[in-house]
Amino acid sequence: MSKMPASKQQTVDLSSLSIQNLSSVKKQLDEELEHLTASFQKLRTAQAKFRECVKAIQNGVNPEVEGKTILIPLTQSLYVPGKLEDTNTVLVDVGTGYYVEKTTTKAIEFYNEKTKTVGSNLDDLEKIITQKTQNAKVVEDVLRQKVLAANSTSSTS
């Protein structure tokens, strides 16, 4: 689950750090940001999938389809005709290889709940990402100033 960033716990004066230290801090922040944005994307896709499941149940599994012939995808491009035996219950993948039989209403509830949880995780993550981006920017600014200062007073020591 999402963790709060470890920074901000102790305050370090950035201007007291050396160029080397600063650039490693910057690098670390960049790596964290990359990781977080990747997670953000993955959560987005997961959320979209849950929403799709809800839609699939609403459109595909209801009493209206009872008795009607539907096409069942065996692969992405191969379909066979079939009929739904039972339009009341569906099997839901709850994770780690377990499937639970649920009524369509319960299943929709389940997916909506999932969408909501993922949504709140997304919100948290977004906050962390903005915070981190800001941190990275500040570090970059200080780093640039340091480099400039070092260049203008070069050939010391």
């Binding site: 709850v94 994770g95 780690t96 290889g97 377990y98």
Partner: peptide, 25 residues
């Protein structure tokens, strides 16, 4: 894995005792 299992545990807790559960083997 931990959070996935936690989610499943939570889900099981809300199920009726006679709910049909299948395991993918």
């Amino acid at each position: 894995q931990y959070s996935e299992n936690k989610a499943v545990q939570k889900e099981f807790a809300t199920l009726d005792a006679d709910a049909n559960i299948y395991k993918l083997i």
